[in-house]
Amino acid sequence: MTDRPSPEDFLKLADPLRRELLAHCYRMLGSVHDAEDLVQETYLRAWRGYAGFEGRSSLRTWLYRIATTACLTAIDSRGRRPLPTGLGAPSAEATTPLTERPEVPWLEPVPDVMVGAGADDPAQIVTSRESIRLALVAALQHLPPRQRAILILRDVLRWRAAEVAEVLQTTTAAVNSGLQRARAQLSEVSPSLDDPVEPLPPEQRERLERYVAAFESYDVAAIVELFTEDAIWEMPPYPTWYQGAETIGRLIEANCPAKRPGDLRLVPVSANGQPAFGMYLLRGEAYHAFALPVLTLAREGVSHVAMFFDLSLFDTFGLPRTLPTRDRAFAKK
């Protein structure tokens, strides 16, 4: 009889795969919090069953099978996670009050460093960041769960059809058929992903600096100038979304609680392979966590902002909930 391995033995073999499994679960679920839970569940199941692991497949394939099965079960009970742009047409009423939909399980951003997109290998950085782009993860949410798994395993992870069939316990023919349908559906809902990836060229870095300066000085005209003509702005948990630079400007003027220079501070982070910021609002004697915008940059300007108001994301991204007004150095990093 095979002896049950010690936790140290199992973790030594499995721990190097943790970040890529987290990325896989995130692509499947669209939630960094759910992905972390499912990775923990995967490792617990694997630990319990490791004594019976016969090595007919690699440990990596075996862990992916457990993780994918757990994700499919979770999707059945929790459903998909949309962004507002996946729910309907844009709103033309930028000045009307906003109404939250907290009951909707919204898509969440993920820090690059949690899923390997902050690695040292430049080629790995680009590959990892392209595969977790916010637009791609949002588009994946439109696919049926098994098609989603097939497309991720085949087109993102570049697995062979036979390997995917082994993970999903199905036939190669079923995998190929599912992949064809998934690609066709994804092409209908997924926008072009040809916007710049890291390292950002100097003009894009300069544009980000202007973006920070425009918000921190609350210069709405300067903000509008930074957007492309048909830019998109969305703000889960608010279900409405807006298109057009001028419309975005009117939305900010009407609904942003900041009203004067110095009301906002932005701290740069990186989410989904894209530039992002922890945005803080001045209340009393300190800046308080307000939102986490994730930007998509096109050659002509900022083409998309997804502004996330879930303050638990500040903890996920390692950001403090408050900044003292005297701490200008940190706020400007």
Rank of each mutant, 00 (worst) to 15 (best):
D3W: 10
P5V: 06
S6P: 11
S6K: 09
K12D: 01
L13G: 02
D15A: 15
P16W: 09
H24Y: 00
H24F: 04
R27N: 00
L29F: 07
L29R: 13
A35K: 02
Q40H: 10
Q40M: 08
E41C: 06
E41Q: 10
E41A: 10
T42P: 00
L44D: 07
R48C: 00
G49D: 12
G52R: 05
F53L: 01
S58G: 02
L59E: 03
Y64R: 08
Y64L: 08
I66T: 12
C71H: 06
I75F: 06
S77A: 09
R78Q: 14
G79S: 08
R81K: 12
P82S: 03
L83V: 02
G86I: 01
L87F: 10
P90C: 02
S91K: 10
E93I: 06
T95L: 06
R101I: 01
R101G: 04
P105M: 13
P105V: 09
P109A: 04
P111T: 10
V113Q: 13
M114N: 03
A117F: 08
D121L: 15
Q124V: 09
V126Q: 13
S128R: 14
S131K: 12
L136W: 14
A139C: 12
A139E: 09
R148L: 02
A149G: 04
I150M: 06
I150H: 07
L151G: 00
L153A: 14
L153C: 15
R154V: 13
R158W: 14
R158G: 04
R160S: 10
A161T: 01
A162E: 15
A165R: 02
T171E: 13
T172M: 09
S177D: 12
S177T: 12
S177I: 14
R181W: 09
A182I: 04
R183F: 02
R183W: 03
V189Q: 05
L193S: 05
L193G: 04
D195H: 15
V197N: 09
P199A: 01
R205H: 10
R207I: 02
L208T: 05
A213P: 07
E216C: 06
S217P: 01
Y218A: 10
D219F: 08
A221E: 15
V224Q: 12
V224Y: 14
L226V: 13
T228G: 15
M235E: 14
T240E: 15
Q243C: 09
A245P: 05
I248V: 14
I248W: 08
G249S: 09
R250F: 11
P257S: 05
A258G: 00
A258I: 01
R260E: 15
P261M: 07
G262F: 03
D263C: 00
R265D: 07
P268S: 03
S270D: 11
F277Y: 15
F277T: 08
G278K: 06
Y280V: 05
G284A: 07
E285D: 15
V294M: 15
L295C: 05
S303L: 05
A306N: 09
M307E: 15
F308L: 03
S312V: 08
F314C: 00
F314K: 02
P320D: 01
P320K: 05
R321Y: 08
R321H: 13
R321E: 08
T325N: 00
R326N: 11
K333S: 11
